[in-house]
Nucleic acid binder design. Structure first.
Length: 547
RNA sequence: GCCCCCGUAGCUCAAUGGACAGAGCACCUGACUUCGGAUCAGGUUGUUGGGAGUUCGAAUCUCUCCGGGGGUGCCA
C-alpha cells in the first residue's frame, strides 16, 4: 500500500504546484515530501501541515495567504472530506468517512499484507544481536538487546526486507579456559575435594549446579579429566541454556557465527596485511596498532597484542567485512552501551578494507536496572533474564523492554510488573483483542454472516478515531524502521487499544434492530483485531482470544 | 581528563522544529436488568534541570553550567 502520509503529502504538494501554475504563488523548488502532524484539537481535522509557515518567508507572503492559496488549489480527492486554514498558517485536512470505511474493508480482505509495506522488497538485512559468549546465563541486559533486535527484525520483514538474525560468539581463548577450569573445580568440590576458585574464575552458581549434575551422571569418573573436557561440557550446556532462554521470548536465531572461524580461515591476517599495505597499521612496543587517527577517528588502537594475540577489534573488523561480503543491503548491530565505543573504529576498519560501510548501522541501547529486587532470591546474584521471565512472563518482559526509547535507561520495576499485573499495559492491549474475539464469537452464535467485508455508515467520532488509528499502523511501522525505534509500536498499540475501548463504550456492536450497522461495526472490529494482532505479533507479544 | 546517553506532572515515561507539552500509575467522582468492569467517562497535576543562542516558531537544534547513569585497556 501507499502510506497515508505520502498520499496526503502528494495532494498538498499538488495543490502548491497548481497554485504556482495559476500564478497565485511564485515559483520555487518544491520538496518531495512534506511533514504532516496530527493536530491535538478536533476542529483542526485529522492531519495538519505547517508548510505555509515554512514557505512564507522564502516567498515573502503572509503564511495565512499561502495557506489559503494552497487550499484553493488542493486537488479533489476521495481521501479528503474538506480542508481548513487556521492561524497562524496551518493547512488542516479532514479525512473522508467513506474513504476510511473503504480502507477498513481492505484491511479485512487483504489482511496484514495491506498493512505491511513493500518499500524494500528484494533487499536483504542482517541484524546482529545478543552476541553473548557461552560463559554464563543471559542477563536482563542481553534480554533488552534480544527483544530490540528481534522486534526490529520483525519490522524490517514487515517493510519487505529478507532478514537474517545473527548471533556472534566466541568459544575460544582465555575466557573459555577459565570457564573449563572453573567447572572442573566445582566438580571436584562437589566430590568433596578441597580446591578453591581463584578470583579470575567464573563465580556463578550455575556452574555449581552443573557440577552437581555431572556428579550425578558420571560420579567421579571425570576427576582425572583436563579443563578442556569441562570446557566442552560447560560450553554445550550454557549455549543451549542461552538459546532456550531466548526461545522463551520468541527469539530464534538464523545464524550462529563463531568468531573462531575468522582466526582459522585467515581473515584476521588478511585484515592486518591490507592495513599494513595501506600504511594504516604499524608496529609499536611489540604490538600492531591500527592508525585510527589517520582516518579521522579518536585514538590509535592495538589490534594485535605483543603476545601475538589479536584484540577484539581485529576480529570485529574481519567479521564486519564478512558481513559486507555476504552482500546484505543493510546491516544492523544491536549493541549495549558498553560496546558502542568501539563501533566507530570498526566502521573505519571496514572502510579501510574497501567496503561501503555506510550500510552498517548501530542501534545502541542503555542498560536495564532492576528495581525493587536487585538480587535474585535463588542465586544471591544479579537477577538473570530467566529469573525475570519466571517472575513476570515473556509477554510482559517483551512489552516492557520495548516501552522506552532504546537510548534511555530502563528501570524495570519487577514488583510493579507483578503486583499490578491487572493494570499492566500489556494486559490492557491483550484485553482489547480478547474482547473483540468475544464479540465476534457472540455474533457468530447469533447467526451474523461475516462473509461480506462491506463497511459503511460509520460516522460516530469514536468510530472515525478508531478507523484512523487503525490505518496509521503502516506509517508507524515505516517510522519505527527508518528511525530504528521499535518503541513507537508499543505506543501505537496502546493507542489503538484505547480507541477501541472507547468505541466499545460509545457504540454497541450487536444490535438486532439495526442489522446493517451491526454488520459494519462487526467488520470494523474484525479489522481492528487484525491490526492489534499484527502489531502485537511484530512486538513478539501474544494476542490471546480469551484471558 | 576525554566520549556517549538521560534530566518533561507526585511516580514511570510519551511527544516527526509547529498550535493550549500528552499517556499510564496514584488520588477523587460517576457508569452494567444489554456485546467480557482486566473497561469507560469526568476531575486535579508542569518555570520540559538552570542560563544564553539559532528560528516566524524550541522539550526537540547549538553553546554553557548543574545533576544522574554508562563508557573510556595490549579484556570482550
Amino acid at each position: 500500500m501507499t502510506l497515508l502520509s505520502i498520499q496526503l503529502s502528494k495532494l498538498v504538494l499538488a495543490g502548491v504546484a497548481r497554485a504556482q501554475k495559476e500564478g497565485a504563488l511564485p515559483s520555487f523548488e518544491l520538496p518531495e515530501l512534506i511533514h504532516l502532524t496530527r493536530p491535538n484539537r478536533r476542529e483542526w481535522g485529522d492531519y495538519s501541515s505547517a508548510l505555509p509557515l515554512q514557505l512564507a518567508k522564502q516567498i515573502d507572503h503572509s503564511p495565512i495567504v499561502v495557506a489559503n492559496h494552497i487550499q484553493d488549489y488542493l486537488p479533489k480527492s476521495p481521501i479528503i472530506e474538506h480542508s481548513t486554514v487556521s492561524e497562524p498558517g496551518f493547512l488542516n485536512v479532514t479525512l473522508s468517512s467513506d474513504w476510511l470505511c473503504s480502507q477498513v474493508a481492505r484491511v479485512i480482505s487483504e489482511g496484514t499484507s495491506f498493512m505491511n509495506l513493500d518499500l524494500y522488497s528484494n533487499q536483504s538485512a542482517q541484524v546482529e544481536f545478543v552476541s553473548a559468549n557461552p560463559t554464563g546465563p543471559l542477563t536482563v541486559g542481553h534480554g533488552r538487546g534480544g527483544v530490540l533486535g528481534d522486534t526490529l527484525s520483525n519490522l524490517l520483514s514487515a517493510v519487505g526486507y529478507k532478514v537474517t538474525r545473527e548471533f556472534y560468539y566466541n568459544n575460544a581463548g582465555q575466557q573459555m579456559k577459565k570457564l573449563g577450569e572453573s567447572l572442573r573445580i566445582r566438580y571436584l568440590q562437589s566430590l568433596g575435594i578441597s580446591v578453591q576458585l581463584s578470583e579470575d574464575h567464573y563465580q556463578g552458581e550455575y556452574l555449581i549446579s552443573l557440577a552437581a549434575q555431572i556428579v550425578e551422571s558420571h560420579s567421579d569418573s571425570l576427576s582425572e579429566e583436563s579443563w578442556e573436557t569441562f570446557k566442552d561440557i560447560a560450553e554445550t550446556d550454557i549455549a543451549a541454556k542461552q538459546h532456550s532462554t531466548l526461545n522463551r521470548l520468541n527469539i530464534v536465531m538464523d545464524v550462529l557465527y563463531n568468531e573462531q572461524s575468522l582466526y582459522e580461515d585467515g581473515s584476521l591476517d588478511k585484515v592486518v596485511a591490507k592495513l599494513r599495505q595501506k600504511k594504516l597499521a604499524y608496529d609499536k612496543d611489540g604490538a600492531v596498532w591500527f592508525a585510527v587517527k589517520e582516518l579521522g577517528g579518536s585514538d590509535d588502537r592495538v589490534i594485535v597484542k605483543s603476545t601475538g594475540e589479536p584484540t577484539y577489534r581485529l576480529p570485529d573488523i574481519a567479521y564486519h567485512c564478512n558481513k559486507m561480503e555476504r552482500k546484505f543491503d543493510l546491516v544492523i548491530d544491536v549493541l549495549g552501551a558498553d560496546h558502542k565505543d568501539s563501533f566507530p573504529d570498526v566502521i573505519l576498519g571496514v572502510k579501510a578494507m574497501g567496503y561501503e560501510a555506510d550500510r552498517i548501522k548501530m542501534l545502541m541501547h542503555q542498560f536495564v536496572n532492576i528495581k525493587g529486587q536487585r538480587m535474585s532470591k535463588r542465586s544471591g546474584k544479579f537477577i538473570s533474564l530467566d529469573d525475570l521471565i519466571d517472575e513476570v512472563g515473556a509477554d510482559v518482559v517483551r512489552f516492557f523492554m520495548l516501552m522506552r526509547a532504546s537510548e534511555s535507561h530502563l528501570e524495570f520495576d519487577i514488583d510493579l510488573a507483578r503486583d499490578q499485573s491487572d493494570k499492566n499495559p500489556v494486559y490492557y492491549v491483550q484485553y482489547a483483542h480478547a474482547r473483540i474475539c468475544s464479540i465476534l464469537e457472540k455474533a457468530s452464535i447469533a447467526g451474523y454472516s461475516l462473509k461480506d467485508t462491506k463497511v459503511d455508515s460509520l460516522v460516530h467520532p469514536s468510530e472515525r478515531l478508531l478507523m484512523r488509528n487503525l490505518l496509521e499502523l503502516s506509517d508507524t511501522i515505516d517510522r519505527a524502521v527508518s528511525e530504528m525505534a521499535p518503541h513507537y509500536l508499543t505506543t501505537y498499540v496502546r493507542d489503538l487499544a484505547s480507541s477501541f475501548h472507547t468505541f466499545y463504550g460509545d457504540c454497541r456492536v450487536l444490535d438486532d434492530d439495526d442489522v446493517s450497522l451491526t454488520l459494519a461495526r462487526l467488520n470494523l472490529i474484525r479489522a481492528v483485531r487484525i491490526g492489534l494482532s499484527h502489531a502485537l505479533g511484530l512486538l513478539g507479544v501474544s494476542a490471546p482470544e480469551s484471558m
